[in-house]
Design a protein around this nucleic acid. Structure first.
Length: 426
RNA sequence: GGAGAGUUGGCAGAGUGGUAAUGCAACGGACUCGAAAUCCGUCGAACCGGUAACACCGGCGCGCAGGUUCAAAUCCUGUACUCUCCUCCA
């Protein structure tokens, strides 16, 4: 959530920044105008409350002295009604200001390409040599099905489209990949966490998915509060400290978690209909950081490094891009995507998204630390995939495929596969 | 699922209608070569408004949300969570 005070102090700057994210200037004007009204009402009602407080004090004194206070009580009865009316007005105005504020995205950082077109992402650098095949590389779903390690058909029967069964060496490869990821993050100092996979609406609000993106997720109700299947472990990880003032000596805090991610993929019908790229349920290892504001850009670099280190160790070619302002997620000030090379598609595909959310989530979720003066300040939050497991498996299958249909296991995963070096058809 | 108890500041802990005791901690000072102990003083989270302000004034503030009242930590309703016992369960 943005700070209304920033909108008030720098309206033109705010409009320009948010225009690059598709926000109309009128929305900012509306928010400020409503906030003006809100402040007026606050002044009026607090004036009356101060009056009531001192009058009540006086009434109490008289009552104790057994004096008559009927006149003051009668007068305060009227004041009470005025207060109730103004309080209602104030609540209405607050709701209106809030309605706009919670739907405004984060300000893009200064070095983000200012464009609504996702094609204006900036490539930062490439890593790895793209393998030249002396045969036509197959798509990962074809490889997986032929090896009997991926079963999309039965998953469709049992659950529906965009689900998959991993079997045998496929299931073990998936497990090898995420264990490798978690172990590497552990070595880098991340604290490993196993989180709830169902979260409440306050948590979804805290990380910015709600109220705008309710259609992207699965929400279930069981006689009571609705719970949402997490679309990413970012939600339970960031909300871990919701409403808390964390010990500043512990910052930066780095957490990592493996979890399934559940996404409705509403609006993406027809895209990536085959394979592991776009599923309703997929495994992802997520990294989340909490830090002081002055440290967050440095931590974003660390996050990217920790993600790309995995790709380098797996020997998978990738490049790093900075998303255009209009393409970055709602909560992000700057997002760097890691895109891994997919030979069959002859292009890079997103495998990690690393974002600095600055104080945007912290303000929603009320996550703070105390500065040198003991004053609470919002932390900065960052999140990044490290990495999407299914997409990593897909990339391994494609990049490490052999002409006979077998797949060589990347060296770093061999210990995780119990020494197995190649997956062949049974 | 059933029954009971609880939730007050950084921590502990009083307060059953008159506007949040007290202790510890913290901060400032005195004493001391310095520290500890002791003494004196200050401070009661966070948030909002006046407002640009860590000053000052006011509002708000006793798990949360409502209600009653001139006035609510206190009374009423709803609700979340924690603990204990029973039941069930991997």
């Amino acid at each position: 959530m943005l700070d209304i005070k920033v909108l008030r102090a720098k309206p033109d700057w705010a409009k320009e920044k948010l225009a690059a994210r598709g926000v109309k200037a009128e929305e900012i004007d509306d928010a400020i105008a409503l906030d003006d009204q809100r402040r007026e009402v606050i002044m009026a009602v607090e004036d009356l409350k101060a009056k009531r407080n001192s009058a009540s004090d006086e009434i109490g004194r008289k009552k104790r002295a057994k004096e008559n206070a009927d006149d003051a009580i009668k007068e305060m009865r009227e004041v009470g009604q005025q207060i109730a009316a103004l309080d209602q007005k104030r609540a209405d105005l607050e709701e209106k200001v809030n309605y706009i504020l919670v739907r405004l995205p984060n300000f893009p950082a200064d070095d983000v390409p200012m464009s609504l077109d996702e094609n204006d992402a900036r490539e930062e650098y490439k890593w790895g040599n793209i393998r030249q095949f002396d045969f036509a590389p197959k798509a990962h779903w074809e490889i997986g099905e032929k090896l009997g390690i991926l079963d999309f058909e039965r998953a469709a029967k049992v659950a529906g489209a965009r689900f998959v069964y991993y079997k045998g060496a496929g299931a073990r490869l998936e497990r090898a990949v995420y264990n490798f990821f978690l172990d590497e993050h552990y070595k880098e100092g991340y604290e490993e966490v196993i989180t709830p996979y169902l979260v409440n609406a306050d948590s979804m609000f805290g990380t910015g998915q709600f109220p705008k993106f309710t259609e992207d997720v699965y929400t279930i109700t069981n006689e009571g509060e609705p719970l949402t299947l997490i679309p990413t472990a970012e939600v339970p990880l960031v909300n871990y400290y919701r409403g808390e003032i964390v010990d500043s000596a512990k910052l930066p805090i780095s957490l990592t978690a493996l979890s399934p991610a559940f996404r409705s993929e509403a609006g993406s019908a027809g895209r990536d209909t085959r394979g592991l790229i776009r599923m309703h349920q997929f495994n992802k290892v997520e990294m989340v950081k909490f830090c002081k504001p002055e440290d967050s850009w440095n931590q974003l670099k660390n996050l990217i490094h920790d993600a790309e280190d995995l790709l380098q160790k797996l020997g998978l070619p990738y490049h790093v891009i900075t998303l255009a302002s209009g393409d970055a997620s709602f909560t992000s000030a700057k997002t760097n995507d890691l895109e891994v090379w997919m030979p069959a598609q002859d292009k890079y595909r997103e495998i990690s998204s690393c974002s600095n959310c600055t104080d945007f989530q912290a303000r929603r979720a009320q996550i703070r630390y105390r500065d040198e003066n003991g004053k609470p300040q919002f932390v900065h939050t960052l999140n990044g995939s490290g990495l999407a497991v299914g997409r990593a498996v897909a990339s391994i299958l494609e990049n490490y495929q052999n002409e006979d249909g077998s797949v060589t296991i990347p060296e770093v995963l061999v210990p995780y596969m119990g020494g197995q070096t190649v997956i062949t058809a049974e």
